[in-house]
Simulated assay, not measured.
Amino acid sequence: MDGKRIQDYWSSEVDALVRTYQQFETLIPSPNGAGAEHKGEDGRFVEDLLREYLSRHLPQGLEVLTGFILRPAVKTGDYGRERSKESDAHSTQLDIIVFDTANYPVFQRFGNSVIVPPEGVVGIISVKKHLNDGDIKKECSALFEAATLCQTLGSNNPNDKVRGPYLALVSVKSKIEKSRTDALSWIFNQVGDAYNGKSDVTFDKLVGFIGALDEWSIFKRRPDSNLTSAEYVGFRHQNGESHLGLQFLLTGVLSVFYDETRRNLRRPGYTAFPSHRPHDTHLGGVPCTSLR
Rank of each mutant, 00 (worst) to 15 (best):
W216E: 04
S141H: 14
H57S: 10
V172P: 00
G240H: 03
G269V: 08
D95S: 03
V14T: 15
S55A: 15
V46G: 04
A34G: 06
S126R: 06
N112K: 12
D193N: 12
S217H: 10
D259R: 02
P268E: 03
T228G: 13
C288M: 06
F144C: 03
D8S: 09
D2C: 08
L54V: 02
P165G: 01
F248M: 06
V114M: 06
T26K: 12
T202S: 14
I187Y: 09
R51M: 10
T261S: 15
Y195N: 07
A102H: 09
G245P: 01
I28T: 09
E13V: 15
D88G: 00
G208L: 07
V122Y: 02
W186I: 01
L65R: 05
S87H: 11
A142H: 10
D8T: 13
V14S: 05
D42T: 12
Y195L: 03
H90Y: 13
G234I: 04
E47Q: 15
R292G: 11
R267A: 10
W186K: 02
K173E: 02
G197A: 03
T148H: 14
N103I: 04
E241W: 03
A147T: 02
L58Y: 11
E37K: 12
H237V: 00
R83A: 02
P158E: 13
F45Y: 14
L167S: 06
G284A: 04
F144K: 10
G285S: 09
Y21M: 07
W10S: 07
F188N: 08
R263S: 08
K220D: 06
E231V: 15
L94V: 04
A230R: 03
I176A: 00
G211D: 09
I124S: 05
P274G: 04
V122C: 08
N189M: 08
L94F: 03
R262H: 11
Y270E: 06
F257A: 03
N32E: 11
T261D: 01
H243M: 00
D182I: 02
I124E: 05
T66Q: 14
N226R: 08
Q108C: 06
S217N: 15
V286K: 03
E52S: 15
G208D: 14
T181H: 00
